[in-house]
Design a binder for these strands. Sequence first.
DNA 1: CTGAATCCCTACCGATACTG
DNA 2: CAGTATCGGTAGGGATTCAG
Lengths: 114, 114
Amino acid sequence: MQDIDIFSKDCPTRFNLSVISGKWGLLIILALADRSLRFSELVRTIGGISERMASQTLKYLERCGVVRRRVVQHAKPPQVYYELTPLGRQFVAPLSQLVEIANRNVDALIYHHD
Amino acid sequence: MQDIDIFSKDCPTRFNLSVISGKWGLLIILALADRSLRFSELVRTIGGISERMASQTLKYLERCGVVRRRVVQHAKPPQVYYELTPLGRQFVAPLSQLVEIANRNVDALIYHHD
DNA sequence: CTGAATCCCTACCGATACTG
DNA sequence: CAGTATCGGTAGGGATTCAG
């Protein structure tokens, strides 16, 4: 714990938070919160996401150790499941809280023009 | 509350979360968590942020009702303080939790190449 | 001190088409 | 079904300069 300062320019934690700073990371993590999903299920679940971004973001989250990819062998057509790792699961609670806050204040939070 | 579905394509909440999805929003909110800061204090606090992005992001957060701008009159040179609104303060707790998780797992979370 | 203005670049992202 | 490949637009962001 000790010397980590998120306000420091080169703080690795700052980079780590990029798992949710993108457009889709947060949504994917929450989509997988309850149960593992197949690729196409995930795409259908998250309205507006393209297959390209689903694939790309999943790969990124996997590389960060947040998501695990599980292939069901001998299945035709192939089945690939995605699920949160224990590490990824830790993010669910605070992210859910953020969403709740945003929901509660959905009227106040709107961008006020001029 | 009721019908808000974050997985729906046009969910306003999804947009609202853009206050933290950028590169600087989360850091600014946490920097202002303890006390209000002047513009240059904020820039110095958050390592690596440019004046341009500080100004731009603050304006954005202000428009969203998360940050309030307070000008001290009759001060020369001018003093401008930024502070969280009650709405903004709600985000502090979950965001702190995210940072803590990222800190705890700073080694595991690193992007794994190949 | 507190920004606004400009320039420019890149990374992100959407759309579409294609593959095993 | 589960992706990859390619193309191109756009918004995010850095560097620098200027202004009240």
